[in-house]
Design a protein around this nucleic acid. Structure first.
Lengths: 228, 228
DNA sequence: AAGTGGTCTAGACCACCGG
DNA sequence: CGGTGGTCTAGACCACTTA
């Protein structure tokens, strides 16, 4: 015998898909399932926990486990370091630093960083190249407090890569959208003005405080893939 | 004491971030950590498994556990039923069916569905409205084999919603990109021709075979948010 | 108050795979 | 071959939440 937790998960999933347990319905308790299926409650727990994490079940103490009424599709994707993403496609990678200076951020960014007015942040702009063609343009604000002495040379290593491997992150927020390229952006990315760009806006936090916010503009043709 | 697995995870994470264990380095075995931290190996296993799933550790039998060299940021997001997403913003929802007919799909779609040439699929086009304003335009191909007799009335329930709650899905693929609105799309979505649209292309499979493919065009201003 | 899921423990066996 | 992670078990206690 020796039923594994994946076997249990498969069986439960089968019953859900076969409408043996209807959406919204209560399913048996872990203890009952363990007895019926012939395994320990721990094993059932592992299987049900996994299905709940996938969005197919809703579990609450005392209330029991229900089949999700509106099965939310939960997608996942990896956000690799830009260099690795490009090299992973078999292309050569290069980074070109466009601007690096201390500057007072616009009000929206300042309030995001909760920094008092008048305190400058580090403004970084740069272009990631794939096979010497523009692939990704980044505009970044960075809290200089995270930089060591001496500061890293962002002409040699992109802020993206330096941050990932030197600053411990604890959380953040990310959003995707589409925007028309303004003339300057079109010039930098080598595309037509007005071209539809895939935009990624990210705020990264460490110890509960934002340390960097970045707006990434992908050259036309970029696709972000995810698994369901 | 009673250290929980989340405490163990926190401690391991602390050591990673403090560079106590450098990227690429081997960390102690589960057994060693269990003894050092004063808990059962099972508890350590749970914590390390979670960190590995998050992309911070790499584990292999016999080889041991290493701190990931290139910490991949894994993001997750939920894709709700369109109606619920709109209503969740406090807006009223409506669906307008633009077209429903049997038609032979283009070659790319036919090969995707692995359907023999000459066999028609169901072509559906429709518009989701938020507060009576265009929010999302969908173009869909659907395998008619999944439809019951009589077929659902897609003027009353959107294909999106009907499929989610009536067809068990087993997997699929999803990709996001940006595109300029063509004149027809601009007319449907009520935006300017050439406006940057957020595009979502999805293929849904059941029992290993594609059952529907859809191209979703979001009205300008749409943002997809995810958690890191 | 009591039922249900969440987790810990100690021990065990096994699958995998590197040396 | 042997070390390491992957998992199962049986029992226990606890936290949460609803009835």
């Amino acid at each position: 015998m020796a039923l594994g937790w994946e076997d249990i998960r498969t069986e439960v999933l089968r019953r859900i898909e076969a409408r043996h347990w209807a959406p919204g319905a209560l399913i048996p308790t872990e203890e009952a399932l363990a007895e019926e299926l012939g395994c320990a409650r721990t094993t059932v727990n592992r299987a049900l926990r996994d299905l709940a994490a996938a969005g197919l079940l809703e579990r609450r103490r005392k209330a029991g486990t229900r089949v999700a009424l509106h099965p939310v599709r939960r997608a996942r994707f990896d956000i690799p370091v830009t260099r690795l993403e490009i090299e992973g496609r078999g292309q050569s990678y290069a980074f070109h630093l466009i601007e690096e200076r201390r500057a007072e951020p616009p009000a929206a960014v300042a309030s995001l960083f909760r920094s008092p007015p008048g305190v400058p942040l580090l403004r970084l702009r740069g272009l990631h190249l794939a096979d010497n063609r523009p692939a990704l343009y980044e505009e970044r604000w960075l809290d200089p407090a995270v930089l060591p002495e001496p500061a890293p040379d962002f002409r040699r290593i992109s802020p993206n890569e330096w941050l990932v491997s030197h600053v411990p992150w604890t959380g953040g927020d990310i959003a995707f959208s589409a925007a028309n390229a303004c003339p300057e952006e079109a010039d930098i990315l080598g595309c037509a003005p007005g071209a539809a760009l895939f935009v990624c806006e990210r705020v990264t936090e460490a110890e509960g405080r934002p340390i960097t916010s970045v707006r990434l503009l992908h050259a036309p043709g970029y696709r972000l893939r995810a698994d369901l």
